[in-house]
Amino acid sequence: MLNTKNKSDRFIYHFNPEETEITMQTKNLEVYYGKSLAMHNADIQFQKNTITALIGPSGSGKSTYLRSLNRMNDDIATVKGQILYQGVDINQPKIDVYEVRRRIGMVFQRPNPFAKSIYGNITFALERRGVHDKRVLDEVVEKTLKQAAVWDQVKDNLHKSAQSLSGGQAQRVCIARALAVEPDVLLLDEPASALDPVSTQQLEQTLRELKKDYTIIIVTHNMQQAARLSDYTVFFNLGEAIEYNKTRKIFTRPKIELTDDYVSGNFG
């Protein structure tokens, strides 16, 4: 059989908006650091209640793209183009960036618990938003720690410093912390890169559970993780989205040769 691989440079899957609910979408996005263009050509849609993995070699723009989605790049980069969140362009000056970030939560590469108790880490943002009812806060703490699958390990130590936790537990507390402000999108920037294999596996299981309630977008440098975990995968290279498709297709029958090279380990 002849090689039927698409010889064009890029392949981006598009949903039919009539059939699927799109939570987030970017159009004509361009990110500049100073004057240099760091990322462009990534018109991607994210389906509700799915996990989408962003993969690619380091420097490919995947993290830059992710951080643009909740405008965490505001201070360090210029972001042009549209970022649609449930149809509303959130990349415009009139938008309240804090409300955006509440709805589109983020978990980072290194676990970064604050120098507060576990309880305090989770309730902190709520308290800043004026929630002081102890019963409500207690409930949120229990609910989110359960969602992050770390409740059983820390329930007796809620008032101990979160910075004394192990990496895996700390990262889960950080996830619980992000869930406490009731986002509906969760962005994760290589959340398992600082964790051991067992913690990583547990984290992946947790994310599969969370998918029921949240739309999850995760950057990972670990291709097995993307293959195991995600429903859709975007492959980035040199600041562009090269291929976007169902994960199964990306890893078995990629349409672009570059993707094939990357997922089969020929470069990266």
């Binding site: 509303v88 309240d96 804090y98």
Partner: peptide, 14 residues
Amino acid sequence: DQKLAKQLMKKSKT
């Protein structure tokens, strides 16, 4: 959409 846009454009306490 417009309801959401309104919510997002309201200047928050933050």
